[in-house]
Design a protein around this nucleic acid. Structure first.
Lengths: 145, 145
DNA sequence: GGAATATCGTTGCACTTACAACTACAATAC
DNA sequence: GTATTGTAGTTGTAAGTGCAACGATATTCC
């Protein structure tokens, strides 16, 4: 029990944390500066965009973007105030609510996407070599189970 | 400009974000429950422990743990109140301050470490195969430059 | 059918964090 | 040497987030 981390393991873990912190901070700042859109909002908008009917139950959306329910309630409030998302009630379950991407939301996303994609590419994807991307994707899948 | 992400790239990036969010949340909760120590505090304590003289300038410490200066000021305040860290003034630079790990801080760290290492191992390191750890470490280094 | 239990989304509250402004000091320019 | 500019750390303030508790509805069990 409690096998020590060797140097490679320690580097893999601490690098993971440090890289994430730095990248997310930079990408968030970049997105806010260029489009007034925080990364967390961008994340919600893309998730909704790729959902069937551009809509998702609050619960499922919270899971997808890894946010607490209350956190998502507030985030959707903010996006609603800007007209990027609306709420719709759920027919099958009267407790439930959908968050729905509006046309304005889709446009805001289309505007912001090039900036963000470039940012991710230069800071992250460009460092991937050979089969790195595939291996990483498989790694996250293994961890997720 | 703006080359589209392919499926592997998208998976590598989104998995990176989602995995980080989930892992950090779980590890933080685990550490708080078992030792009353948030992950951010743990991070400061280990960083100090492995620094020469168990001390670091506030500025350097903030960089290491990827926190803003003001954020670090408050975090060191909290750790100081619990007696895990003290401040010392800097001789060469009268503006400067060191954060120094106390013996109590070192003990708290020693207590918490097994819990945290087990958590990291079962959630992250156990999923690494073959040369994964080494490759990851190299990847973070490439990204960092 | 009715009671107990679980789930959905929201709210009150506390906590953590970042940004901007500030003071104190250091380094550079002239 | 003095003026300018830069840096270290702290503080006021505001934003974002999670937890616990809540009202409303669903589901399960008898």
């Amino acid at each position: 029990m409690g096998k020590r981390m060797d140097a490679a393991e320690l580097g893999a873990w601490r690098g993971f944390l440090a890289t994430h912190a730095r990248l997310v901070r930079e990408l968030d700042e970049e997105l806010r500066a260029a489009h007034g859109l925080p990364l967390s909002s961008y994340d919600v908008l893309t998730t909704l965009e790729s959902a069937p009917g551009r809509r998702l139950r609050m619960r499922d959306l919270a899971d997808e973007v890894v946010l607490s329910r209350s956190g998502l309630t507030r985030l959707v409030d903010r996006l609603g105030r800007e007209g990027l998302v609306t709420r719709e009630e759920c027919e099958e379950d009267a407790r439930g609510a959908f968050a729905v991407l509006t046309d304005a939301g889709a446009r805001a996303l289309a505007d912001a996407r090039p900036t963000h994609h470039d940012g991710v590419r230069t800071r992250f994807l460009d460092a991937l070599e050979g089969e790195d991307a595939t291996r990483l994707r498989e790694l996250w899948a293994r961890i997720d189970t």
